[in-house]
Design a protein around this nucleic acid. Structure first.
Length: 487
DNA sequence: AGCAGGATGAGTCCCGTT
DNA sequence: AACGGGACTCATCCTGCT
């Protein structure tokens, strides 16, 4: 903020501090490597962070308050953001930071006039990483840095050759990370794993899209999904890091299991608790059972299954979101069970906030009770257009009443019953009418993938789960049409 | 209809031991 | 490496009651 010369430097520092690294470490790393060697700095900082977390993770309070003002998503982000209103200003800043003029100006053009310098820098990084990713295809070496073995990635990126057979099997095997904390979680600055792999070139261009399904699917399913979605690697996250609901989803999210049928169990537990001898074993057993059946404490010695209201809250929906309009309790359980966890999705979608200040146009497939829409509203991203596809009537009613209640700016909510009814021609027509879509979002049916299914766990080709291919089809049409519209 | 209870089982991964 | 036990899972179907 003092002078322009120093502001470009502090920009780099700021960026790392915002990623959760201690300020002094950042400064030291930059002194050691020079601010242009971002990769080296990142590796060094990761090493520090790992050493820190293994040595002592208990004495966080010893730090004085000054050093931990890196509150991930807080509004201070916006205040620190230095906007260069004129293209020339931003270009100069980037060149000063050491980026080639040509690369910088392309990035500025692609990011639009409202983009801040930090965003443009992100874009350049992504482009650089994408190029490296391409090399991988030309000349095989280990593509994915295993998050659990950070040591392997903290070394300089030596390119180890691996046999071709390993390449083939890698396509089949997408390993679930443990723990599933995604690319980092609010209030846990130290935790960063499994950053989504840089986008392959084919995935570039609008619209953004967001796909979700159960993490623990039959073997090969996620590899197939990934290959159909431009080879982008899935991100696996457990919502327990965002709310009190612990479920593992691939993207990306998590919903609640069916846990309302356990009257017997609650009585058993009450009886046990009323006895005197509650030894350690019994206590452990009780906690175990509560977790298994998803019971909550509702009084002395009393546990109970979750009410729909409570599930609503856990999943991040507004109170009574699924209530009313003649909806039965069973239907509420069912609809909620199939939904997004709003906080988790909102965290992922938060990157869109500054990209669409004037509103976003969304194609929402398998909308359900509108988890994606609620997440966008939570982020205060105005929704100009929602085209929603949802087969269940009760769910469509819920989404419509949410829409009417919240009065989005465009007042446009178009509903379709069936993804298959949304044919290619219809999509193009809608895109012509509204000027394209900014985001395609949806989670396709998990029935035939979910472990709890005893009857028809038939995989991605199953009756319902095969609708995933409709997601791909629609996304592809939207992308190609968008490309044509840009010309 | 709506609701609650209960039976139904396998694929996958983790983690400890051999 | 290989093996085995344990834990886990956006489910489905049927029954019986109100």
């Amino acid at each position: 903020t003092s002078s322009e010369a120093s502001s470009s430097k502090s920009k780099v520092i700021d960026q790392f501090i915002r990623m959760g690294f201690p300020e002094e470490s950042v400064i030291k790393a930059i002194q050691d490597y020079g601010e242009e060697n971002i990769d080296e700095i990142t590796n060094t900082l990761l090493n520090y962070a790992e050493a820190e977390s293994t040595n002592n993770n208990s004495n966080l309070s010893d730090n004085n308050g000054d050093s931990n003002h890196y509150s991930g998503l807080s509004s201070s982000d916006e205040e620190n953001e230095i906007n260069y209103p004129h293209e020339e200003g931003r270009l100069q800043a980037l060149i000063k930071m050491g980026y080639p003029r040509e690369e910088a100006s392309i990035a500025i053009e692609r990011c639009g006039e409202n983009a801040g310098v930090a965003e443009v820098v992100d874009f350049i990084f992504a482009a650089q990483m994408a190029r490296e990713f391409d090399e991988f295809y030309a000349e095989p070496y280990e593509p994915i840095i295993n998050s659990n073995k950070r040591r392997a990635c903290s070394e300089p990126p030596t390119r180890r050759r691996i046999p071709n057979t390993a390449m083939a099997s890698d396509e089949e095997l997408i390993r679930l990370p443990n723990p599933m904390i995604g690319f980092g979680v609010p209030n846990e600055p130290g935790l960063m794993t499994q950053r989504p792999v840089p986008l392959p070139d084919v995935a570039r261009g609008p619209p953004y899209f967001y796909y979700e399904n159960v993490a623990i699917a039959p073997k090969g399913v996620w590899a197939k999904i990934s290959s159909k979605l431009y080879g982008i690697k899935p991100e696996f996250v457990d919502s327990q890091y965002f709310c009190a609901a612990a479920r593992k989803r691939g993207y990306i999210h998590k919903a609640l299991p069916w846990a309302e049928r356990c009257a017997q169990m609650t009585n058993k537990i009450r009886k046990v608790l009323e006895k005197d001898d509650k030894n350690l074993f019994v206590q452990k057993e009780i906690i175990e059972q509560c977790k298994r059946w998803n019971l909550v404490w509702v009084g002395k010695n009393k546990v109970a299954p979750l009410e729909p209201d409570e599930i609503e809250k856990l999943l991040g929906f507004p109170k009574d979101h699924t209530r009313g309009g003649g909806i039965t309790k069973t239907d509420r359980y069912k609809s909620l069970g199939n939904s997004f966890q709003v906080d988790t999705v909102a965290y992922h979608l938060s990157v869109l906030k500054h990209l669409f200040p004037k509103g976003i146009k969304v194609l929402s497939l398998f909308s359900g009770i509108g988890g994606g829409e609620v997440a966008l509203r939570r982020l205060q991203i105005p929704m100009k257009v929602i085209v929603s596809v949802e087969i269940s009537e009760v769910n469509r009613n819920i989404l419509r009443s949410f829409w009417e209640e919240t009065k989005q700016m465009g007042d446009v909510l178009i509903e379709f019953k069936d993804v298959q009814a949304l044919d290619d021609h219809k999509i193009e027509e809608l895109m012509d009418h509204y000027g394209g879509f900014d985001l395609v979002i949806g989670g396709s049916p998990c029935n035939n993938l979910a472990g709890a299914n005893r009857v028809s766990r038939t995989g991605l080709e199953g009756d319902q789960s095969s609708l995933f291919f409709e997601f791909c089809r629609i996304l592809d049409v939207v992308r190609r049409k968008a490309a044509r519209m840009r010309r």
